[in-house]
Simulated scan of single mutants.
Amino acid sequence: MLDLDLSGLFSPQPDASGAPTVQILTVCTGNVCRSPLAEQLLRTRLAPLDVAVSSAGTRALIDRPMDADAVRLAALLGVPADDSAAHRGRWLSETELVSPDLVLAMAREHRAGVVELAPARTRSTFTVREFARLAADVPDAQVREAADAAGTDPHARMRATLALLAERRGVVAPPSAASGDDVVDPYRRSWETYQLSAAQLMPAVEQVLRVLRATLA
């Protein structure tokens, strides 16, 4: 059974220009299960910070709605129904990689696809579970110290935090074969597989939320 955390539900608060400052992109294959669920969880829980979250797929089912079981998971995890209902699959292209401050891939194959399209995104692209693994032993105070050293600009603060985590690649122990850095793809599989996918995703999302709040709040 999923341990449901329904805290952190707020209405988004854009800046005075109407455009959120920091942008996050989540990426999976079809953009109908894992990445939209991650997108919606982050968007719901990061409000009222000035952050926009979107998603795309490396082999997207273009204009397809979110998978029904992924919608069911999203609802159980506190995502507003309208948010899930509005989703349509979107193809990952170089254009989508121009503006994000952070790209969170659902699996290593998706991270490789992002870096192939936009090599300059190497240090700002992580699998979501890799991000969590690298961040796990970094306290909030250290995140804030790195971000504060970069000044008040939110993009610069994000770059400083992501550089801090990227430097830990090759230092932090790699994941075990059993855990890995991927979130399992549940598409067209059993409800138990959807639950497993969410159980892998949620702890990673919580680490992302912690680090971003320490960086931007």
Results as ranks from 00 to 15, higher is better:
S7M: 15
L25G: 09
V22L: 11
Q23G: 13
T21D: 12
V53G: 01
P36A: 10
C28S: 13
G57Y: 05
R43M: 13
S35C: 15
S7W: 04
L37Y: 15
L25C: 15
Q23L: 11
P20R: 08
V51P: 02
L42F: 07
R43A: 11
G8T: 01
S17I: 14
L46N: 00
L42I: 09
Q40C: 14
S55L: 03
P48A: 02
A47D: 00
P48D: 02
L6P: 05
D15M: 13
T58Y: 02
T44Y: 02
R43F: 07
E39Q: 11
A19R: 12
T44F: 02
A52T: 10
C28G: 10
F10N: 07
A19Y: 10
A38E: 13
I24M: 03
T29M: 12
A16P: 14
P14Y: 01
S35T: 10
V32T: 08
S54C: 11
E39A: 03
A47Q: 03
G30D: 04
V22K: 00
P12G: 15
Q40H: 08
L6G: 07
P14M: 13
A19E: 12
T29G: 04
P36R: 05
N31L: 04
L46W: 03
V53T: 04
S54F: 14
P12Q: 12
S17N: 13
V32P: 02
T26K: 06
R43D: 06
I24W: 01
A38Q: 04
V22N: 00
L37R: 03
L25R: 07
T21A: 14
G8H: 12
S55A: 10
P48W: 03
C28M: 15
Q23K: 15
G18A: 14
V22G: 00
T58P: 03
A47R: 01
Q13E: 15
G8A: 09
L41R: 01
A19L: 10
P14N: 14
I24Y: 11
S54H: 09
L6C: 10
S17M: 12
C33H: 04
F10T: 14
A52I: 06
R43I: 00
R45E: 05
L49W: 00
V53Q: 00
P20N: 15
R45Q: 06
S55E: 04
A52H: 05
S11R: 09
S17R: 15
P36W: 05
V22E: 00
A47K: 01
T44R: 07
A56S: 10
Q23Y: 10
N31M: 02
L6D: 14
R34E: 05
C33I: 09
P12N: 06
V51G: 00
C33S: 06
T29C: 10
D50Q: 06
A19G: 13
S55P: 05
P12F: 08
E39H: 09
P48H: 00
D15A: 06
V27E: 07
A19T: 15
A38I: 13
T26Y: 10
L41Q: 04
V22S: 00
C33A: 14
